[in-house]
């Protein structure tokens, strides 16, 4: 039995009267790549932000490595070190070079020496294929390169799990491929990943499990084969068909 890294039980999040999701359960095993799909506004991003404690859930619990991180008195800063987050809009630190972006956490959070931090940061940049862009500022990089720096920045903290919040949605079609390739590589290396995306090609090829969320509920989850070829619910089939039609074209253009 593989060990669960992340366990979510009965998670509920509301904004005032507006219920984002309710009584949500989800387990992520070590080394798994889980892709969450669903229409916009179904709480996928909010779910990631809850896991990273960037927003507080209203009810329910989350365990990371069998430790409840939603418990009172949890050191949130410490928890976030172990959870990498990649944002839709990259959110790089614009006043720092690519190297500076990756180094900051090593320097200020992990308190590494400058030499150690530089070495580690260069290693992470090489991992995403950007060692030669180390001294470039975000404003001098393409969107795809910025997102890869964003991934390197998160990887540098040696997280137990990586969260991706629509990592390619803000990218021009021709730049999506390079980011997906880095993510594919990470999955192969055994990184545990939770990915919100509309890239069905990636989901089909890389995901161990696809989770279909709608209106705050997990409608259905299963292997790519089950989900694409034998979905249990007509709603899943309908959504997958629509999204593949829509994004499949873009993917072809990108190739």
């Amino acid at each position: 039995m593989p060990e669960p890294i992340l366990t979510i039980k009965n998670l509920t999040k509301k904004y005032g009267e507006n219920v984002i999701f309710q009584n949500l359960d989800l387990t992520v095993n070590e080394g798994d790549t889980i892709v969450i799909i669903g229409p916009s506004g179904t709480g996928k991003s909010t779910l990631l932000r809850c896991i990273n404690l960037l927003t507080r859930p209203d009810d329910g619990q989350i365990w990371l490595d069998n430790k409840e991180i939603t418990a009172r008195g949890t050191d949130e800063d410490k928890v976030r070190q172990h959870i990498g987050m990649v944002f839709q809009n990259f959110l790089l630190f614009n006043h720092l070079t690519a190297l500076g972006n990756v180094k900051l956490g090593l320097d200020k959070v992990k308190k590494m020496s400058d030499k150690e931090a530089t070495e580690k940061a260069m290693h992470e940049l090489a991992r995403v294929g950007l060692a030669d862009r180390a001294d470039h500022y975000p404003g001098q990089l393409s969107g795809g390169q910025q997102q890869r720096v964003g991934i390197a920045r998160a990887l540098a903290m040696d997280p137990r799990i990586m969260l991706f919040d629509e990592p390619t949605s803000a990218l021009d079609p021709e730049l999506i491929g390079e980011v997906l390739e880095v993510m594919r590589q990470l999955a192969l290396e055994g990184m545990t990943m939770l990915v919100v995306t509309h890239e069905m090609g990636f989901a089909r090829e890389v995901a161990d499990r696809i989770v279909f969320m709608e209106k705050g509920y997990i409608v259905e989850q299963g292997s790519p084969n089950e989900m694409f070829n034998h979905p249990k619910f007509p709603r899943t089939r309908e959504f997958l068909w629509k999204i593949t039609e829509l994004y499949g074209k873009k993917e072809k253009e990108a190739d």
Partner: peptide, 11 residues
Amino acid sequence: AQMQAGRSIGL
């Protein structure tokens, strides 16, 4: 947004 990015790496 930058606050979220900073917090996300444990700052």
